[in-house]
């Protein structure tokens, strides 16, 4: 598990005086790492799926849909990963996505605000809720699981409070065409998700604040001795998580053209599945942006396979559950073996 950061962070070519030995070593670490395994699974899965469906997967519309609907799982996975980085959990990620989506639609339909304002406001709303989560955890010293369980319930209610069970539609056509559009065949929302993932990766890899979060999650004692506030790290991580959920909400609004309060119901479990399969530990101190994205892609492939073969939808959950269990077992076996080698 601990190698995850190094493998994603290591840029063998980036360092002018890197000795050949160490870059070779890093290549080995990478080949043994979670990311490599996930890349292989993703590629094999994609190729198998593409060939067994007789190339149907590669036709423009289908391929576009594969990546369009990958954006939200990536974003909620990253939102969960951000709090896992400091050893916290955020159970409110799913409902918060739904709430911000409803809020954005309400701002456009009912309050008549222009789309850009609504979008920014919804993202900020997500951040504010995340900030509240973080402050509650730090101020009350109650376990983060319980705090976000409670806020999840509250937000769930708020989500329906916006428009009951009704649907918002016919909001900003510009936003929707932007959301459903693509550049050079790549869906815009997917580009957005990848750009956000890149920003999150840079944040955790390079930004002082991001490193402080990871230091706090990895060894709170050492972090404190280095003048890093563990409380601040928790608040920042929850705020970031909320912001990312807000972005996910916006993507839903832009992509689907109509939203109702049930959005987010089925996002909580995937939000954990992506980072955990991607190699993030619950204990904190480790993030894996690439792993999270790849895991989200693999889960999406299961979804696609279900649609392509018209299999019972239930298989998706069964398989994803089995994959998560398998992933933790493999990680456990591998770290166990490495531990013995030392």
């Amino acid at each position: 598990m601990t190698s995850t950061i190094d493998t994603t962070g290591a840029k063998p070519s980036g360092e002018p005086d890197s000795r050949r030995g160490s870059s070779l070593l890093r290549a080995q670490v990478f080949l043994r790492g979670t990311d490599f395994t996930l890349i292989v699974i993703a590629l094999v899965g994609f190729v198998v799926l593409a060939s067994t469906t007789g190339g149907n997967l590669l036709t423009g519309g289908t391929l576009k849909a594969v990546f369009q609907y990958l954006a939200v799982p990536i974003l909620v996975g990253l939102a969960q990963m951000s709090v896992l980085a400091v050893g916290q959990m955020n159970l409110s990620v799913g409902v918060l996505t739904g709430f911000t989506a409803m809020a954005a639609a309400w701002l456009m339909v009912r309050a008549g605000l222009p789309a850009p304002v609504a979008v920014i406001a919804a993202v900020l709303l997500g951040g504010a809720v995340g900030l509240a989560n973080g402050l509650l955890v730090v101020l009350t010293r109650i376990n983060g699981f319980i705090v976000t369980l409670a806020t999840m319930t509250v937000i769930d209610g708020l989500r329906y409070g916006v428009n009951g069970t009704g649907t918002f539609q016919n909001y900003s056509s510009g936003l929707v065409s932007l959301g459903q559009g693509s550049i050079l065949g790549v869906p815009n929302v997917f580009i957005l998700a990848i750009a956000v993932a890149g920003a999150v990766a840079v944040f955790f890899r390079r930004a002082v604040l991001g490193r402080q979060l990871l230091a706090s999650g990895g060894n709170p004692f050492a972090a404190r001795l280095s003048g890093i506030s563990n409380d601040r790290a928790i608040v920042v991580a929850h705020t970031l998580s909320g912001l990312l959920a807000g972005v996910a909400g916006i993507v839903v609004v832009a992509l689907s053209g109509s939203v109702n309060a049930s959005i987010g119901d089925d996002l909580l479990l995937p939000s954990f599945a992506a980072p955990i399969i991607g190699g993030v530990a619950l204990t904190g101190g480790v993030v894996a942006v690439l792993g999270t994205c790849l895991a989200a892609f693999i889960v999406r492939l299961v979804d696609v396979a279900q649609a392509q073969y018209s299999i019972d939808r239930s298989w998706v959950d069964l398989i994803v559950g089995a994959v998560v269990l398998g992933a933790v077992l493999i990680t456990q076996v591998r770290t166990g073996r490495e531990g013995r080698r030392k």
Binding site: L269, A273, D312, R313, S314, W315, V316, D317, L318, I319, V320, G321, A322, V324, L325, V328
Partner: peptide
Amino acid sequence: ALDFALVGLVSL
């Protein structure tokens, strides 16, 4: 993960 798997299993 078990919950995930059982969701699928139950509806199957």
